[in-house]
């Protein structure tokens, strides 16, 4: 987000749990933050309606995701549902609501943030991996669905960062990653933000694709 603000663009964002971090971000960047629980369907719909009413944005980033570092036996149906709600369904609802509105305004870019492009083989938490497969396949179909109205939809599949959701990955996996990835290090939020900003602002001819920014796995 800071990467977008740094380019002098007006930005709104949503947050759910990290109130303090959201405040700090608002103060540092001047961006407007709104609390939104993506598992609350009514709230999400209301929010999306409000966004459309205010005038559809040019760029939409979907970064929200949840995961828990649990083995298959320990995963509950609730874990599964929550991952599907936040990682998958909210992205679907967002594209369904904002995509056509953006198209009506002359087009734009939606960038979904995920973790897998199906090129990797990793022992990830099963429910998380499932939602990432959902996201990448959905990106392909969204690209086809919204391309004709001039809205590009792409996904960035991130490698583990030293912060955020990566903390919900098994520690051993993160260590393996540090040892075996091409760049031999974890990523930073700042550098993947530059990738997101690039795709959101400079891409004009790619849609429906998953781009990896993972240091080489």
């Amino acid at each position: 987000m800071r990467a977008l603000v740094a380019r002098g663009l007006p930005v709104d964002f949503t947050w759910c749990e990290g109130e303090a971090r959201a405040r700090a971000l608002s103060e540092a960047t001047g961006a407007v933050g709104r609390r939104l629980d993506l598992t609350d369907r009514a709230a999400l719909q209301g929010f999306l309606r409000a966004v459309v009413d205010e005038g559809a944005p040019d760029v939409v980033l979907h970064c929200a995701a949840v995961s828990q570092a649990r083995g298959l036996q320990d995963l509950t149906d609730d874990d599964w549902d929550r991952a599907v709600e936040v990682n998958g369904r909210s992205a679907f609802a967002l594209c369904r609501a904002l995509g056509p509105a953006m198209g009506a305004r002359g087009g734009g870019d939606i960038v979904l943030v995920g973790a897998l492009d199906r090129g990797q083989t990793l022992p990830l938490p099963v429910h998380f991996a499932a939602t990432q497969g959902m996201l990448s396949a959905m990106t392909m179909a969204l690209g086809k669905a919204l391309g004709p109205v001039g809205v590009r939809v792409n996904m960035v599949a991130l490698g583990p960062l030293g912060e955020g959701l990566s903390r919900a990955l098994p520690a051993s996996l993160v260590e393996d990653y540090r040892a075996f990835s091409a760049l031999r290090r974890l990523g930073t939020a700042e550098e993947v933000a530059r990738v997101l900003a690039w795709l959101a602002l400079e891409n004009t001819f790619m849609t429906g694709r998953v781009v990896t920014a993972n240091g080489g796995i």
């Binding site: 391309g147 490698g159 091409a182 760049l183 990523g187 930073t188 550098e191 993947v192 530059r194 990738v195 690039w198 400079e202 891409n203 004009t204 001819f205 790619m206 849609t207 694709r209 781009v211 990896t212 920014a213 993972n214 240091g215 080489g216 796995i217």
Partner: peptide, 22 residues
């Protein structure tokens, strides 16, 4: 698009495939 890919701004993408094909 290629400018970003080869620039110093891009630090974390490697082994990536970018397919601008419309």
């Amino acid at each position: 698009m290629a400018v970003f890919l080869v620039s110093d701004e891009n630090t974390f993408m490697t082994g990536a495939r970018v397919t601008p094909d419309g």
